[in-house]
Design a protein around this nucleic acid. Structure first.
Length: 191
DNA sequence: TGGGCGATTCGCT
DNA sequence: GCGAATCGCCCAC
């Protein structure tokens, strides 16, 4: 693997709207399992749909810390969702990882998910956390240290953009990014 | 201190 | 396409 690891500060200490599309095509591994990021969403602290909108709380405290760390929260009382904190310390912006194309540790991910279908392993924010074993224990961990491994993409992929999914506020903002033509998206992008 | 609600997923229709 | 599962967060009372 000749691709360079993503340097935490340099890569994440930028606008969440720049980091998000630049992460499409990057390789994310957790404990040796993972693959290529094909879908994510940006959440800015001035955005009513963001957990950080309204100020710091115990749950979202990590979002108000330095960039380059994982923010993991429970969704619907059942699933875990993984975010990368971006911008400057205190800016409370993050990207939600929504889908991954499985590449490594597939047997382990199938076992954790309990489904054989490759396309169903990581095609959703809750699914990919279950597949890679991400839980609240990963909240606050640095993204450039084990068990996380994050590597820059090679080349410039074609990126598609659309409105975010599953939110009730700021539903019109086109802050969902995807790898064009990927078979591993959580939902297709409208053409 | 209690109740409504959610950045979801899955199974059934 | 619809609704249940399920529980921590968060704010109103």
């Amino acid at each position: 693997m000749a691709l360079p690891p993503i340097i935490r500060r340099r890569f994440f200490d930028r606008s969440v709207h720049d980091v998000a599309p630049d992460l499409i095509g990057a390789t994310l591994m957790v404990g040796g399992a993972g693959g290529i990021i094909v879908e994510l969403e940006a959440y800015h602290h001035t955005d009513p749909a963001s957990h950080s909108y309204g100020g710091p709380t115990e749950r979202n405290a990590i979002m108000f810390g330095p960039p380059g760390f994982a923010y993991v929260y429970r969704s619907y009382g059942i699933h875990w969702c993984l975010n990368f904190v971006c911008e400057a310390e205190g800016s409370a912006s993050a990207v939600l990882i929504r889908a991954i194309e499985p590449l490594a540790g597939i047997a382990a991910m199938r076992r954790r998910r309990g489904v054989p279908d490759l396309r169903a392993l990581c095609s959703g924010p809750g699914k990919l956390c279950e597949a890679m074993g991400v839980t609240h224990k990963h909240n606050g961990l640095a993204l450039d240290r084990p068990p996380f491994e994050l590597r820059a993409r090679a080349g410039e992929p074609e990126i598609v953009v659309g409105p975010r999914i599953g939110i009730s506020k700021a539903v019109d903002k086109p802050w969902r990014y995807g790898l064009k033509g990927s078979k591993f998206l959580s939902k297709p992008f409208k053409a």
